[in-house]
Computed example of a mutant assay.
Amino acid sequence: MSPYLDEFILIALAHFFAVASPGPDFAIVLKQSISFGRRNALMTSAGVGLGILVHVTYCLLGVALLLSQSPELFNVFKYLAGAYLAYMGVQALRATAAPASKQNDAAQPVQESAFSALRRGFLVNALNPKATLFFLSLFTLVIDPDTPQSVQLFYGLYMAVATWLWFSSLSLVLSKAAVRGFFQRAGHWFDRAIGVVLLLLALRLVI
């Protein structure tokens, strides 16, 4: 692994700045943490990490090169992602105020299934054209074509695990009772604000 240490460090730094920048992944983990609590947020984070493997897989298979050479195919992918983000944004905008008896009940959040949370995180990341462009740049410009595929696979697995750990850490902080209680005092307004953010992200993707 030592001959590729410099390449790995460059990839790790690029990935850190990419994953730490606000975007659809952060927005959905934040919403899950506040709306549903720690377990769901952690499952959503795991889904985001699994979504990374989709990008790694098509880069290793050469599909990234096809996407870069076919604007029409990339646009279809981009509009699908925008539509999904817009759908989630509209759902969030429809949030209504909770009954007064439940507004301070941060310890007993309404739950959705673990699979639904996992799927939500997975789809947000896997359909994110920003992530597509990032991995396309990594695998075509940063990673040397002569780097063995086994090493490239290691890079991809590292980025998937690092993404999962990053968003899981955020979930642990954002789902604390004090943090959730702060947001849930006006929870439906918070959901609507996240809805606006998701709609703006969808608009940004397709323009």
Rank of each mutant, 00 (worst) to 15 (best):
M1E: 00
S2V: 10
P3A: 01
Y4S: 09
D6Y: 13
D6Q: 09
E7A: 06
I11L: 13
I11D: 00
A14H: 09
H15T: 00
V19L: 07
V19H: 03
S21A: 13
V29E: 02
L30S: 06
K31P: 04
S33W: 14
S33D: 08
I34Y: 04
I34G: 02
F36S: 08
F36W: 13
R38F: 08
R39A: 09
A41E: 01
L42I: 15
M43F: 15
M43D: 00
A46V: 06
G47R: 03
G49I: 11
L50T: 03
L50G: 01
G51R: 04
I52V: 14
V56T: 06
V56A: 00
T57K: 08
C59D: 04
C59H: 09
L61Q: 03
G62Q: 11
G62S: 02
L65Q: 14
L66E: 00
L67G: 03
S68L: 14
S68M: 13
P71H: 06
F74L: 11
V76W: 12
V76E: 00
F77W: 14
K78C: 08
A81S: 12
G82T: 07
G82Q: 08
G82M: 10
Y84R: 11
A86G: 01
A86P: 00
Y87A: 06
Y87I: 04
M88E: 01
G89S: 03
A92H: 08
A95G: 01
P99N: 02
S101P: 00
K102N: 02
Q103K: 14
P109V: 04
V110F: 11
V110Q: 13
Q111H: 09
A114F: 07
L118Q: 00
R120V: 02
F122S: 03
L127H: 03
L127F: 11
P129I: 08
A131W: 08
F134S: 03
V142N: 02
I143H: 11
I143W: 14
P145W: 13
D146N: 08
P148R: 06
Q149G: 06
S150Q: 10
S150R: 11
S150M: 13
S150K: 08
V151W: 09
L153Q: 06
L153Y: 06
F154A: 10
F154R: 12
F154P: 03
L157I: 15
M159C: 09
M159E: 01
V161T: 09
V161I: 15
V161N: 02
T163W: 08
W166T: 01
F167Y: 15
S168D: 02
S169A: 12
S171H: 10
S171D: 04
L172R: 14
V179Y: 14
R180C: 06
R180I: 11
F183M: 11
Q184N: 14
R185C: 05
H188E: 04
F190H: 04
D191W: 12
R192N: 05
V197R: 05
L198S: 01
L199F: 05
L200K: 13
A202K: 09
L203S: 05
L203G: 10
R204K: 15
V206D: 00
I207K: 13
